[in-house]
Design a protein around this nucleic acid. Sequence first.
DNA 1: CACCAGGAATGTA
DNA 2: TACATTCATGGT
Length: 219
Amino acid sequence: MFQVNYIQLHETMKEKYGDLHWWPADTVDQIIIGSILTQNTAWKNVEVAIKNLSVANKDNLHAISEMEIDQLREYIRPAGFFNQKSGYLKEICIAIEKAGGIGKVGEFNDQELEKFLISIKGVGRETMQDIMLYAFRRKVFVVDKYTERIFSRIGIIEKGMKNAFELGKEIEKGMKIEDLNNFHGEIVEICKNICQTNPKCNQCFLKNDCNYAKDFTDP
DNA sequence: CACCAGGAATGTA
DNA sequence: TACATTCATGGT
């Protein structure tokens, strides 16, 4: 079995999916809302929650920043963890408003933006990366559970690197932002459509490069 | 019925 | 630093 690198992995998936135009949302505000709501939660449930906000014309940071927590909780209930997420969501909306809104926060440099986001309760490493890349178009590679799964199965963690996060820092330096955007989208799509629904991975178009598929074919 | 989903905070050792 | 636990709905 030959060893693929991250560029080859991206090229293979790009060929299949084309430009994905991630993140799946209509507005920047929806991207930020979705990044909180999708924490350890199926995207389908997040869509319902965002729809609830949207039909009430509350799918924006300003509306949420001044919404009663009890009401917010009912809108987002389908996305699970609603007691925590209602608080997290209101917190990040207030924090951005307080910092002068999306426009002002968008003027932060990468380091300032990362520090600002990670200081908000409910925003951890991956959520911060999602918002950096997809809401503020910064050169960031997102490492989520799917990324760790794919990288581990395909075995592209390079020697000297401990985990997907370390490789991610290399990937950030080595790829253009539009490729970083697509790459993470591709990883999520392939995991949602194939690895997740077919745990044995035997229908995956990456199967020749996938350690997990190899394990499956072994007796 | 059991298990998991595009995590993060909190507590323990 | 490295794990374990908790949070909660909806699909398979």
